[in-house]
Design a protein around this nucleic acid. Sequence first.
DNA 1: GTGAATTACTTCAGTGATTGAACTGTTTTC
DNA 2: GAAAACAGTTCAATCACTGAAGTAATTCAC
Lengths: 150, 150
Amino acid sequence: MADIRIEWPDPEGQEIVERLFAVAVALRVHFEETAADAGLTVPQAHTLIHLQEPQRMGEVAAHLRCEPSHVTAIADSLERCGFLRREPDPEDRRAKRLLLTSRGQQLRDRLLARLFERAPIISVLEADQRTELLSLLRTAQSVAGPDIRR
Amino acid sequence: MADIRIEWPDPEGQEIVERLFAVAVALRVHFEETAADAGLTVPQAHTLIHLQEPQRMGEVAAHLRCEPSHVTAIADSLERCGFLRREPDPEDRRAKRLLLTSRGQQLRDRLLARLFERAPIISVLEADQRTELLSLLRTAQSVAGPDIRR
DNA sequence: GTGAATTACTTCAGTGATTGAACTGTTTTC
DNA sequence: GAAAACAGTTCAATCACTGAAGTAATTCAC
């Protein structure tokens, strides 16, 4: 998205959005690579990361912004690999909760460690710049709230 | 990515990365919605936006990080809709360049305008905070350079 | 409390983005 | 001037994802 350039009343806002898009692309690529290194597809990795606590499948579908039937397929594959298992939800016998096995926990930890370790962008900043950036991000996200889904 | 939490020596860095991921997700959703509103798929919209200048198909494939054969399909669809046309590259008769028709230009402009207009996050910030954010983004991206691809 | 409507997940067929291999024509190399 | 590399296309296959129909459990209404 280097070559956007249109006439626009707010060039500063435009550059911020452009640069944030660049951040978004870099992070997405970083996520894809990290997932692929772990032998996972992107939605598999998202699911694994989301399962710090056991979650109902419908909840996972909402988080991933996909159809419940797709979560069935993702859960099937991760269960076949031994990273999670289904358990009936004690509160609603229609529902099933997904929970990580110890292998799944390990993989999740490794995935997150790499995600943070090698995350692009912030490594360049000085300590006070990082603090300032964090403060701005908190402010910016305090209203809409971080869009956490997917 | 709300529920990440692992033990990690750098909680500030972790929160920054978490929040940047949240920004990335929000912008991706924003992009998908904007493309869909224009009747385009995500790769179609990326291609259109990338074609400020005529580009060779191989170059577009590199930009989109996909196989050349996929660019053929995308170009076919956008050409069928009348948004671009192929022209032989004057420098290499094997290659073809994609260039926007005037309808394509119009759609590209509309797309970019909406992308900037409705971009989430920055609307909350005060003027001096925006300036500070831009400065930090410039610094952070000056080394690795903005990862512009895709 | 019993039946109707709703909900959680699954199954399965279909769609659409994407890849990889085989092919045509063009350029480069030596 | 032949061989190798390259740009794009075609086509078959793959994979993520959706939508509809089905099963079982829950909730709602009366």
